[in-house]
Amino acid sequence: MNLPLNLEMDGTAILLPVRAQPRSSKNGIEGIHDGRLKVCVTQVPEKGKANKALLKVIQSALKLKRSQIELCKGETAALKVFRIHEISKEELYTRITAAAGKSR
Rank of each mutant, 00 (worst) to 15 (best):
K47A: 04
N2D: 15
S67C: 01
S24I: 03
G101A: 12
A13I: 01
A61V: 01
P4I: 01
E70P: 00
V57Q: 02
A77K: 14
Y93R: 11
I58R: 01
H85D: 12
S103I: 02
P17E: 00
V39H: 03
A20Y: 05
C40R: 05
N2H: 09
A13H: 08
G11Y: 01
V18D: 07
L3V: 05
V39L: 10
E30K: 08
R23F: 09
K80P: 04
G35P: 13
S88E: 11
P17F: 00
V44G: 03
P22G: 06
T12L: 13
L71T: 01
Q59V: 02
T94F: 11
D10F: 02
S103Q: 13
V44T: 10
S88D: 08
V41W: 03
S88I: 02
I87E: 11
L55D: 00
F82L: 05
M9V: 05
K47D: 00
R95A: 07
P17Y: 00
G31S: 09
R104Y: 08
G48Q: 11
G35C: 10
P17K: 05
L71D: 00
S60D: 13
E30A: 15
R83G: 03
N6C: 10
L55F: 06
L16K: 04
T76S: 09
L71H: 01
S60F: 03
S103R: 11
A50R: 08
M1Q: 08
R83M: 06
T94S: 15
C40D: 15
T94I: 11
E8R: 15
E70N: 02
G101D: 08
V44H: 06
T12A: 13
R83T: 04
